[in-house]
Lab assay of single mutants.
Amino acid sequence: NARWTTEEQLLAVQAIRKYGRDFQAISDVIGNKSVVQVKNFFVNYRRRFNIDEVLQEWEAEHGK
């Protein structure tokens, strides 16, 4: 399903906090979204969920 429920959106943001840009890991956490759908989520929801800021926090924690 290409549509993202609110629950899936929140799950994705939590997974980004945990896995950074590991699209496969994020896809696995959500369970019903492909890697391509996760990559599209990054692009389409970047502003709404401040994904750049979430990634900066992840990179700071993981030394990337």
Rank of each mutant, 00 (worst) to 15 (best):
residue 39 K to N: 04
residue 56 Q to Y: 06
residue 16 I to L: 10
residue 5 T to D: 05
residue 13 V to W: 04
residue 64 K to D: 07
residue 17 R to Q: 04
residue 43 V to T: 13
residue 55 L to E: 11
residue 55 L to K: 03
residue 7 E to L: 10
residue 32 N to P: 02
residue 31 G to S: 07
residue 64 K to F: 09
residue 22 D to Q: 05
residue 19 Y to T: 04
residue 1 N to T: 15
residue 48 R to K: 15
residue 7 E to W: 04
residue 6 T to R: 14
residue 27 S to K: 00
residue 55 L to F: 08
residue 6 T to Y: 12
residue 13 V to T: 03
residue 13 V to E: 04
residue 31 G to A: 07
residue 56 Q to V: 06
residue 51 I to C: 03
residue 48 R to I: 15
residue 9 Q to E: 09
residue 30 I to A: 02
residue 37 Q to Y: 00
residue 6 T to H: 14
residue 20 G to C: 01
residue 48 R to E: 15
residue 49 F to T: 08
residue 29 V to L: 13
residue 64 K to M: 15
residue 37 Q to H: 06
residue 5 T to G: 01
residue 7 E to F: 06
residue 10 L to C: 11
residue 20 G to I: 03
residue 47 R to I: 13
residue 24 Q to C: 01
residue 5 T to W: 01
residue 4 W to S: 00
residue 16 I to T: 07
residue 40 N to I: 06
residue 47 R to L: 14
residue 39 K to L: 03
residue 6 T to G: 08
residue 37 Q to E: 15
residue 27 S to D: 00
residue 29 V to S: 15
residue 52 D to V: 04
residue 64 K to V: 13
residue 4 W to C: 06
residue 18 K to F: 02
residue 61 E to R: 12
residue 32 N to E: 06
residue 41 F to E: 00
residue 64 K to L: 11
residue 44 N to P: 00
residue 7 E to D: 11
residue 5 T to H: 00
residue 58 W to L: 08
residue 54 V to K: 08
residue 14 Q to R: 14
residue 34 S to C: 02
residue 21 R to T: 14
residue 62 H to Y: 10
residue 21 R to K: 15
residue 3 R to E: 14
residue 15 A to I: 04
residue 41 F to W: 08
residue 4 W to M: 04
residue 19 Y to M: 07
residue 16 I to P: 00
residue 49 F to W: 15
residue 49 F to E: 07
residue 39 K to S: 08
residue 45 Y to C: 15
residue 5 T to Q: 01
residue 13 V to S: 04
residue 38 V to P: 01
residue 12 A to S: 01
residue 13 V to M: 15
residue 54 V to I: 14
residue 8 E to F: 03
residue 36 V to E: 15
residue 11 L to C: 07
residue 17 R to Y: 00
residue 43 V to P: 01
residue 2 A to I: 15
residue 39 K to W: 01
residue 25 A to K: 15
residue 64 K to A: 15
residue 39 K to A: 08
residue 46 R to D: 07
residue 37 Q to D: 15
residue 28 D to T: 13
residue 38 V to R: 01
residue 9 Q to A: 11
residue 27 S to P: 02
residue 46 R to M: 01
